[in-house]
């Protein structure tokens, strides 16, 4: 007769026996970490190297930058990190500043040829909330419900659109969620080009050169600046009143620099205190060490820390051993 007790006992016995086998295996399953391959820093680019896109004129040094593209922090390079007041400026034939930056991060303006397409897409996907002039003014004249997009710089548009947060799933949400992007990067660039044409501003859309990044500096700066909200393992966590710091596990390097330089949502904007080189290091640390964590100790359990560990320890450890005690501790039948 199969009773529940007998079934339980069989399950307990099966569990216990499988432990013996697996435990023996486990001692074999922990090899030494083989020497990880070392990427040698290939930082051949100085401030004088050609980093501008082809077809543009490169100007080194911080001279002749259009006044409206320098932010209000004064004229020191550090305070203006991320703005056009940068190591290198790139001008096109028409004399427009189309890119700036340095060997670590190059900030580029989307081509002005995209402006008509951008306007079309904007009217289709964005204007119903942000207004036809991208200034947050709705047709009936109400303001203040939705952000004014003018003067924010293309990086802001790039972040919100390429992460799928905009167009918003629900404009009344406290915080837009990351989701499958509704528009392509190309379309996002077009919208950015049109919005920027209304009132040119920085930062432009960044692309970080992660080769030769210093992960050690990246980790130190991440722990100092980012972990307080995003957690040290980058999983993100809830903040007050339905806001939250999102997970960093799916962010692209460009989106990471976008976020650091523009400060979307509740996030502070890091301009004055992080140089391009430091931002590049943080980005590399997120893209390499956080998105591909070194879990040499077994299953990483989502970087949830003691919450997941306590659950495993109590459920599998204590619970499993209680099953074992049910097997060996009860009398035989």
């Amino acid at each position: 007769m199969v009773t529940m007790r007998a079934t339980l006992k069989k399950a307990a016995a099966g569990f216990s026996l499988s432990i013996v086998g697996l435990a023996a295996l486990s001692f074999l399953a922990t090899p030494l970490e083989s020497g990880a391959s070392t990427k040698i820093a290939a930082d051949g680019l100085g401030a004088t190297a050609q980093i501008c896109p082809t077809g543009t004129t490169q100007v080194a040094g911080r001279v002749g930058v259009p006044a409206n593209l320098v932010n209000e922090n004064g004229d020191t390079a550090k305070k203006n990190a991320g703005t056009a007041y940068s190591d290198v400026q790139c001008y096109n034939a028409a004399g427009e500043l189309v890119a700036y930056g340095n060997a670590d991060i190059l900030y580029e303006l989307p081509s002005s040829a995209l402006i008509p397409l951008g306007q079309q897409l904007y009217m289709q996907d964005c204007a119903s909330c942000h207004g036809v002039h991208a200034d947050g003014v709705l047709p009936n004249g109400t303001t203040g419900n939705y952000p004014d997009l003018t003067g924010l710089g293309p990086a802001t548009i790039n972040f919100w659109v390429t992460t799928g947060r905009m167009p918003a799933a629900n404009p009344r949400d406290v915080q837009a969620m990351r989701r499958q992007p509704r528009l392509t990067v190309f379309q996002s660039n077009a919208i950015a080009a049109w919005v920027n044409s209304l009132q040119p501003a920085t930062p432009y859309i960044p692309s970080a050169n992660l080769n030769g990044a210093n992960l050690t500096v990246g980790q130190d700066l991440f722990a100092l600046n980012c972990a307080a909200c995003h957690t040290i393992t980058g999983g993100g966590d809830a903040l007050a009143s339905s806001t939250y710091a999102p997970s960093l596990h799916v962010a692209t390097p460009t989106q990471i620099v976008d976020a650091i330089r523009t400060g979307p949502g509740n996030m502070p904007r890091f301009t004055g205190n992080l140089t391009d080189s430091q931002v590049r290091d943080i980005t590399a640390y997120v893209a390499e060490s956080i998105q591909k964590p070194t879990n040499i100790g077994g299953v990483g359990m989502g970087g949830l820390g003691p919450v997941a560990e306590g659950f495993i320890g109590l459920a599998l450890g204590v619970g499993g051993l209680m099953l074992v005690s049910f097997w060996v501790g009860d009398r035989s039948e």
């Binding site: 970087g303 599998l316 074992v324």
Partner: peptide, 24 residues
Amino acid sequence: FLFMTFGVTALLGAFAQINPIWQF
């Protein structure tokens, strides 16, 4: 039972990561 306790602990130690301080 002693061996079983060792077994469960060894299994967890081998396959479930706990406190990966290098990430912190």
